[in-house]
Write a protein that binds this DNA or RNA. Structure first.
Length: 331
RNA sequence: GACCUUUUCGAGUACGC
């Protein structure tokens, strides 16, 4: 059975949703009785392709758990049907299936996406009343929601309140705020956030944390810049300080042992294009293949669009052809 | 005993002002 489940999982992860259904029926046909895990994978793949009615059908099974419901709630939220998703909570309780922090986080995200931050906040507040522990992921989701709405002061106070309540901000919290400041063009605030992160790191390395009142040291040690941190900053540098600064930050990143991915390179690619350095951009594209970071449709469309805009039509079509040859689909 | 599922941050494109 674990083997069947692994196979189901692989198909689902690869995005071959139809195969998940086929395999599932084959299991039954072979006399293998699917367990909760099998059902959960199937339901997940159904939700992923938007087949909510079919997914709902599986909720009538007896052998389902919190994860099954979370998956379906996730599916509804993904379609913008957060209210219906919310409605499933009472159904869960009737069946004696508890919901958890993850359920609530999914709903918080769902409401944020609709711009209904008040509702998202309400869900968060009622976590405590319901005796469900808040976690940093939910808090980050809400903070991101406030950032998206341009309510930075609320976002920042959420972080402070969380900290006071024992929810230590993690690197994602900082990345979220960093991204918001960068998008607003506020490099000053962005860099002060970076200094805060690096400050934590320095203090930790020099053992200064013993002077702090820290409940759980493990939560603080993750405050190291990640690839997303660097990519966000590199993007902002491209826009406001110029390509040179961005590239030197890129070098610094690699020296710190963090390797770029497709998104990082595409960001630089975009920066080069914006500054009219299309030849360099084309070079970077080739470089990406050498680094084993296969450019995707975003990388290509970035450069193809700028080539068109500057009248270099032939090169643009060449790249478009290359895209097709490499089997990269358009969005 | 071993297997499995769900949630948070980063890239291009918007002939509108």
């Amino acid at each position: 059975l674990p083997l069947w489940n692994q196979l189901l999982y692989e198909f689902n992860a690869a995005g071959v949703v139809s195969q998940v259904r086929v395999l599932y029926s084959e299991m039954v046909f072979c006399g293998v009785v699917p367990n909760v895990f099998s059902v959960n994978i199937l339901v997940h793949s159904l939700c992923k392709m938007g087949d909510l009615d079919l997914a709902l059908g599986y909720l009538r099974n007896n052998d389902i758990d919190t994860v099954t419901y979370n998956t379906v709630i996730w599916g509804f939220c993904g379609q913008g049907l957060t209210n219906q998703a919310f409605g499933l909570l009472s159904e869960m309780l009737k069946k004696g299936i508890c919901f958890d922090s993850i359920t609530c986080n999914i709903l918080v995200k769902g409401y944020c996406r609709l711009g209904l931050i008040k509702y998202a906040e309400w869900v968060m507040h009622n976590l405590v009343d319901g005796g469900i522990p808040k976690d940093i992921i939910g808090l980050n989701t809400l903070i991101d929601g406030f950032c998206e709405a341009g309510l930075m002061s609320h976002a920042l106070s959420l972080m402070e309140n969380g900290e006071r309540g024992g929810l230590m901000p993690d690197i994602v919290t900082y990345n979220t705020l960093l991204n918001a400041f960068c998008k607003m063009g506020n490099l000053v605030r962005a860099e002060s956030l970076i200094n805060e992160i690096l400050g934590f790191q320095r203090d930790k390395e020099s053992g200064l944390f013993e002077n702090y009142v820290v409940q759980n040291q493990a939560e603080i040690k993750d405050l190291r810049p990640t690839l997303a941190t660097y990519t966000t900053l590199i993007m902002a540098y491209c826009k406001q300080l110029g390509i040179e600064e961005a590239l030197s930050l890129y070098e610094k990143m690699i020296m710190n042992g963090i390797m770029p991915d497709v998104v990082t390179c595409s960001s630089i690619l975009c920066g080069l294009c914006r500054h009219g350095k299309l030849t360099e951009a084309a070079l970077l594209l080739r470089e990406m293949y050498k680094m084993g970071l296969d450019p995707n449709h975003v990388s290509y469309s970035t450069i193809i669009n700028s080539l068109f805009k500057s009248g270099r039509v032939v090169e643009a079509f060449n790249l478009q052809g290359q895209m097709v040859v490499r089997g990269i689909s358009f969005d």
